[in-house]
């Protein structure tokens, strides 16, 4: 069962479309939420969607057909790492980008809390300066 699932979800079957397609899709969903939604929390969620889209794109750049994670703890991996392991750089970059995304989300939520305290609402159209 798990083997079947693995083959189904392996990049060879799904192809680049699923990765690139969903990263663009996530980006668009996020943009839609930012532009249309009135609720501040939903806007923050939209921001996170955009970040996830970009992170997904970045991580899928590192994939190389048929290769495994770049942890060189097996003899054959140690001997010829390039032959068996994918590019580790995007993974390191995404790690950084994710933490930064968390930080931005936390900041955004704290500002939303203050706004809610002051205006008693999360509706962007009722907060005077934020209309655009």
């Amino acid at each position: 069962m798990s083997e079947a699932l693995r083959t189904f979800f392996s990049p060879q079957i799904l192809g680049p479309e699923i990765f690139y397609g969903s990263s663009v899709g996530l980006f668009l969903i996020g943009l839609y939420m930012i532009l249309v939604k009135k609720n501040l929390v939903k806007i923050v969620i939209g921001l996170s969607f955009i970040e996830s889209g970009v992170n997904l794109f970045l991580i899928s750049l590192g994939y190389v057909w048929g290769k495994t994670a770049p942890i060189l703890n097996k003899p054959e991996l140690m001997k010829e790492p390039v032959k068996y392991a994918v590019d580790p750089v995007p993974q390191a970059l995404v790690l950084t980008a994710i933490v930064i995304g968390v930080a931005v989300t936390a900041m955004a939520l704290s500002i939303v809390i203050v706004l809610h305290d002051k205006y008693g609402t999360l509706d962007i159209s009722k907060i005077k300066e934020l209309k655009w």
């Binding site: 930012i34 900041m107 203050v114 706004l115 002051k118 205006y119 907060i127 005077k128 300066e129 934020l130």
Partner: peptide, 12 residues
Amino acid sequence: GHSAEAGFKYLL
């Protein structure tokens, strides 16, 4: 309120 609004705008 005002600075929170400005901060949110900048953050976005």
